[in-house]
Design a protein around this nucleic acid. Structure first.
Lengths: 241, 241
DNA sequence: TAGTGGTCTAGACCACATA
DNA sequence: ATGTGGTCTAGACCACTAG
């Protein structure tokens, strides 16, 4: 009988969606200040407490950063705190520190079936593929292949990559307006392919940690498919339960 | 309102601590109902809103489960929802399903330096060590060694383990009053040791995913050190960013 | 119908940053 | 001194569950 189920969404969820849309539209730049609770409450026609709950949810998802006395900011990959959120490789003994990036090449090609599925594209769509090594001191520890939808990364080139200082996702957000907000990784232990072992300066046949990442932007839209091999001889992948 | 300047903690944090202590003391059993917000507010002398915030924090940490119209319950490892929180190995293609446990042995020995440090014990303290295989259908996929502080797991034996049906952490919480609430894992890709490859029915020299877990109970006290080898030929370790 | 948690509001006051 | 977010309270009403 009662076929119509109420599609009830609480006000603070609706407000959260509106805020996310504003973020997605780039209404406030990464690292920028968003309006105060009072202003937002007025704009959306809800109480301050409701706005607060919506903001708290976005803060928990690391889309916003709150600073008492100063205001609420759009999270940015350029901040110190965000550096180790996406790279979970840590030295076994020493404290972690930033890795140096060496770009190998940057090419454009057709996505193909697998990547098209991962990135929610047509198999004939063009993607940009970046390959690089990450070095810790004089030892490479990561070899990775980064695949991006071509239409969202138009001017990306080897020169532009090499010229940029800082985390890759920082470049993506400031130069291409694509902000990575989350992702999933699938890990396997594999015997490293010969050419990758060579690039990583480890003996042929060494075990490597294979990491398959799909990174998403606002609304969980996939915008990056990354396949990496980690050297875990003196490092480990850190996960929380 | 007792607010010391130097050690200021908001009221809802203090309330959270009190609730955690009650949980730790076993005032309400796992799976059991805790008092309503009204009762707790009265008991701790704070408003309902403050109690709500404390409970929400514990719910986010998966120590409590709330059900509208019914009440707030102590989280339990026997519930369906908690099954895959600690084992992140998933089949590449098929949907995940519960694994069968085969216990190999259960022995008592001195902790030694490494385990003593991980479990916060004296090196001379006695630990219980359980070794087992986890099977998916007719194929073993996990070999693991589980180390527990002997004084908290007095009657644990091979017979008792084999007799119990369901998740291991369910037995720990109901039989020994030790509830696992979180943990950290360190992952490495390794060449499987011969005896472990043999137990897992994979060729000698196969790459395996080595997982070093430290599991904690209330107040982040370590209560388990687990070393496992995963077969990732048709499975992967799933992680979120 | 009674009791639970879930949502929403309004207002007061505190802590912090900046000018 | 002003404006921001952070905490705490009180009360109203809604949604869900169970007897």
């Amino acid at each position: 009988m009662n076929m119509e189920k109420t599609v009830f969404q609480p006000l603070y969820r609706q407000t959260e969606v509106l805020l996310t849309q504003a973020l997605k539209a780039g209404e406030w730049p990464p690292g920028g200040l968003i309006p105060s609770e009072q202003e937002l409450a007025l704009r959306f026609g809800v109480s301050q407490g409701t706005i607060r709950k919506a903001i708290e949810s976005l803060r928990a998802d690391k889309l916003l950063v709150r600073r008492q006395g100063r205001g609420t900011y759009v999270a940015s990959h350029r901040e110190e705190a965000a550096q180790f959120r996406f790279l979970k490789l840590r030295p076994d003994e020493r404290p972690p520190h930033a890795l140096r990036s060496e770009f190998l090449d940057c090419t454009r090609l057709k996505a193909g079936q697998d990547l098209a599925r991962a990135l929610d594209l047509q198999a004939s769509a063009v993607i940009v593929r970046v390959r690089r090594l990450l070095w810790e001191r004089e030892q490479p520890v990561v070899y990775e292949e980064i695949n991006l939808p071509g239409h969202r990364f138009k001017g990306l080139s080897a020169e532009r990559l090499s010229a940029y200082q800082g985390p890759l996702y920082g470049l993506f957000e400031s130069e291409f307006g694509v902000r990575m907000v989350g992702g999933e990784e699938k890990l396997k232990a594999v015997i490293g392919p010969p050419e990758i072992c060579q690039a990583l300066r480890v003996p042929a046949g060494s075990p490597l940690l294979y990491v398959d990442r799909v990174t998403v932007s606002y609304d969980q839209a996939p915008v990056e498919a990354r396949r990496a091999h980690y050297v875990t001889r003196e490092h480990h992948y850190a996960a929380r339960l």
